[in-house]
């Protein structure tokens, strides 16, 4: 019988909104879905997962050596559980990308990464070559391990009654890695990129971190949007690393993607080409981004953005 295990992203306190989207991705499998919450002191996460529509059970693994979500400890126990599932799903986040292949190797199965559509239990669509190729892949492995581009799916809603939560015994502590420090930035009330309805994104054309702060963020907040950036803007220190959208950053699929001072390199397009509406502001009328935009305006970011915010009543 088919059964799906969804390994949920979380930070021990809150369930990531990506989980509800991965749950939707799993729907064509038409199989019961168990959500695995693995961490420490993460009861609230398990409770939130239990509330999602279509979850049949929440399986909770809580131990001190899972607190830091270290891949070595997590993979060990997930690989033990995975044997009783036909599908194991991760989101293609920094968490899932580091973990899914590690689990796959322990099971000697070939995983499929960056899935954007499940066509059949053994058949998946995924982009490759910076999104210039859409592959249809058949996977006949006994356990199908998938990482899912969460942005490609709508979130599952809250269900009528919570699923049962069962605690499982913890696996071993491998003791090979430890966290020295973390520098996490406060995202305030802004949504994660993959779950944002609107994304307001800046490129090198914005010119400085100060311009991101002064010109881009107020506009993003006016839309309740997630701010984003190109690789060039992140490299230049204008924006934090996890704002990077693109082939080697995040894949987003908002209703609106507003690109300011972005040239439209193929690596960037890879992460946002499926947005509902793409709007570009660039001072170069020949910029490639205009070829991919639904609407474009030529001009200086520093002049246009404040006027735009005023027009939008910000």
């Amino acid at each position: 019988m088919m059964r799906t295990l969804l390994v949920a992203d979380h930070d021990n306190r809150k369930l990531s909104p990506l989980a509800a989207r991965v749950l939707t991705a799993a729907r064509p499998l038409d199989a019961p879905v168990d959500v695995l919450v693995i961490g420490h002191g993460c009861d609230a996460v398990a409770d939130a997962a239990a509330l999602l529509t279509g979850v049949s059970r929440v399986r909770l693994l809580d131990a001190p050596h899972y607190a830091d979500l270290l891949a070595e400890n997590l993979a060990m126990v997930i690989a033990q559980l995975a044997g009783s599932y036909s599908h194991v799903l991760f989101s293609a986040s920094s968490f899932g990308k580091a973990l899914a292949p590690r689990v796959a190797a322990m099971l000697d199965v070939a995983p499929v990464s960056g899935v954007t559509r499940i066509l059949a239990p053994d058949c998946f669509q995924r982009p490759s070559h910076a999104g210039n190729v859409i592959e249809t892949v058949q996977c006949d492995e006994p356990v199908r391990l998938l990482s899912i581009h969460a942005a490609a799916f709508e979130p599952a809603a809250a269900g009528p009654a919570p699923a049962t939560i069962s605690e499982l015994p913890a696996g071993p502590d491998m003791g090979v890695s430890q966290v020295v420090s973390r520098e996490l930035h406060d995202t305030g009330s802004r949504p994660p990129l993959e779950a944002a309805r609107v994304v307001v994104s800046g490129g090198r054309g914005l010119g400085s971190a100060e311009a991101f702060e002064r010109l881009l963020l107020p506009l993003a907040d006016r839309f309740g949007a997630a701010p984003a950036a190109t690789r060039a803007a992140v490299d230049a220190g204008f924006a934090p690393n996890d704002w990077q959208v693109g082939q080697t950053g995040k894949t987003v699929e908002p209703e609106l993607y507003l690109a300011v001072g972005i040239s439209g390199a193929l690596q960037h397009l890879s992460g946002m080409r499926n947005a509902g509406c793409i709007v570009a502001i660039n001072k170069d009328p020949e910029a490639e981004i205009f070829r991919h935009a639904d609407f474009g305006l030529v001009g200086e970011a520093a002049e246009i953005l404040p006027q735009l915010l005023a027009e939008l009543g910000g």
Partner: peptide, 16 residues
């Protein structure tokens, strides 16, 4: 282990 059944171009966007 994986079989690539098809490789397609992504959908084109209409001119803006």
């Amino acid at each position: 282990r994986l079989r690539v059944l098809r490789s397609e171009a992504p959908p084109e966007r209409l001119p803006g």
